[in-house]
Design a protein around this nucleic acid. Structure first.
Length: 158
DNA sequence: GCCAACGTTGGC
DNA sequence: GCCAACGTTGGC
């Protein structure tokens, strides 16, 4: 069963242009149990996700990507010199997982958070909830399709 | 830079 | 197991 997602990245750390350049990347750094559980238990290879720029000026949806792997251990949790190092996580029982994602497209038109908020068709979308801190969250198909339309995407939801 | 919201930690 | 304190996220 395909699902739709929104995945947040700070563009100063990793932006849609970085994903266009790389084609594919490891979605490392998720350190929230609920987000991890979505990746582990619900995400399926081939699922589409909105690539969201957080802590950005302006914040909003910058592109579309595709889940390209199952969840597997995030190597940065074991790297002592890495900012995402987790000294509590054990090699034989990794606490944090990641998935690979592939570029689908950079949206022709960036869809700012302000625009998401003002669009009546998107009422109730999870990312619009105040202080919504999940970095990986599900998106309803109707909302996903609406964002694709707002962004002028070539991509179609399946 | 502020601060509301909320997940996590740790004392009891 | 409760819950206050703390730390982080992320919009503004």
């Amino acid at each position: 069963m395909a699902s739709y997602w929104l995945m947040k990245s700070e563009p100063g750390v990793y932006s849609i242009d970085d994903l266009v350049r790389d084609g594919r990347t490891t979605w490392e750094g998720v350190r929230n149990y609920q987000a991890r559980n979505f990746m582990r238990d619900v995400m399926t290879i081939g699922d589409l996700a909105l690539f969201y720029h957080s802590s950005a000026e302006p914040p909003g949806v910058a592109g579309i990507c595709r889940v390209a792997s199952k969840a597997y251990p995030d190597p940065t949790q074991f790297d002592k010199k890495h900012p995402w190092h987790d000294p509590e996580s054990k090699k034989d029982d990794p606490r944090w997982l990641l998935v690979d994602v592939e570029i689908v497209e950079k949206l022709p038109t960036f869809v700012a958070l302000e625009q998401l908020r003002s669009d009546r068709a998107l009422a109730g979308m999870l990312v619009l909830r105040r202080a919504q801190r999940l970095s990986v969250m599900p998106v309803e198909k109707k909302h996903f399709e609406r964002v694709l339309a707002l962004g002028g995407a070539k991509t179609r939801a399946r």
